[in-house]
Design a protein around this nucleic acid. Structure first.
Lengths: 204, 204
DNA sequence: GTCTATATTCTGATAGAC
DNA sequence: GTCTATCAGAATATAGAC
């Protein structure tokens, strides 16, 4: 009985190539927009001809699908990586808002893929979409623990965050005009839904 | 001295054709997305071959440019058409918010053209962009009259509106989940920036 | 002002040799 | 798994006849 090696070098290599392909797609997306990714250029960046990509992804949309899924996993990871959150509820909410805001505004192409329907012929697969749902559930649970239990209150919170992100990306791509509003938005939200605690300092 | 006719029938006809072309482009955009407009299909809908469109528009982007400009003119017109606005400031703000919200959510393709960068190779001309600036100035003036004078306060207001619109379009396209939040958002805003008046009824 | 014909270029995807 | 060759089709835009 010969023991198999406990590392599958072939699978590792294969996974590394998929990684390279996705990285190349991200480079193009960040440079020219999420729409501008073409198989030819992805291939060029990884040193392959376009048809060879089909050995690793079933289609172009399969590449987008993997990008979509990994973006949402990255959100989760970004939240999980931070071990300490403020104890005071308003400070905690602000910290969460800032993490989400910074993530969303750090990469316009990613944001368009995740949150806007920028790709006419792309719809995430069920598996990829599940990553996004998982993130919403993390948010929902976290808010529930803070006492936000009504759907309408959660909707209010997502609207406040989406609005700040959206305005920042649309009107002040490299600035901080709407990021500065986050403490204010958190206070307004907390006052509205009855989360106690001393108000955060505000930017008036 | 022969009098010229006081109607230029040729110019009228020409303008009517431009109008038909734009209408056809809107039909396609609403059906398949703003990206999906092609000159072939626009031509088909107006009973022309694609190259003939070049007699009326210099390029495909010139069509998008006209669509962008007329969208913003339509916003202006929608606000101008309404003669009576509530006297109470909070009611007035709510009415304005609803008008904007309803306009923005009525047509996803139009919203993507106006407010998101859904078309990689399109940038509005200076003339078209001026229509959007004019709208912001109308908003700014109107808010100023209500006592909202700080840029940060105006930014707050645009973030609240953008957030509600964005969430509605992204997560509840045919519903009213975020439209119902408008009275609440108005009250929160007024409390925050010091606009007096009795609170609106809220949806909690 | 509309047409035909065409240039030019690009796209995602497949077949089959190696 | 990667290649070459190619398909099949789409796109915007231009030239020039009528």
């Amino acid at each position: 009985m010969t023991a198999l090696p406990n590392r599958d070098r072939r699978a590792e290599r294969r996974e590394a190539t998929r990684r390279e392909i996705l990285d190349a797609a991200w480079v193009i997306a960040r440079r020219d927009g999420i729409n501008a990714v073409t198989l030819r250029e992805v291939g060029e960046l990884v040193g392959m001809r376009a048809p060879s990509l089909y050995s690793h992804f079933a289609s172009k949309n399969a590449i987008y699908d993997a990008m979509f899924a990994e973006s949402w996993r990255e959100v989760q990871r970004t939240f999980d990586e931070r071990e300490v959150w403020p104890a005071a509820p308003r400070e905690a909410l602000l910290a969460q808002a800032e993490v989400w805001f910074d993530f969303a505004t750090a990469d316009l192409a990613r944001h368009q893929l995740m949150n806007q329907r920028a790709l006419p012929d792309f719809e995430p697969s069920a598996e990829a979409y599940a990553e996004s749902v998982a993130n919403y559930e993390r948010l929902s649970t976290s808010m529930h623990e803070m006492g936000v239990r009504k759907q309408a209150d959660l909707d209010l919170w997502t609207a406040l965050l989406a609005g700040a992100v959206n305005q920042q990306l649309a009107n002040d791509l490299y600035g901080k005009r709407w990021r500065r509003q986050l403490p204010r938005l958190v206070d307004m939200f907390c006052d509205e839904v009855g989360i106690p605690g001393p108000p955060l300092r505000r930017t008036k």
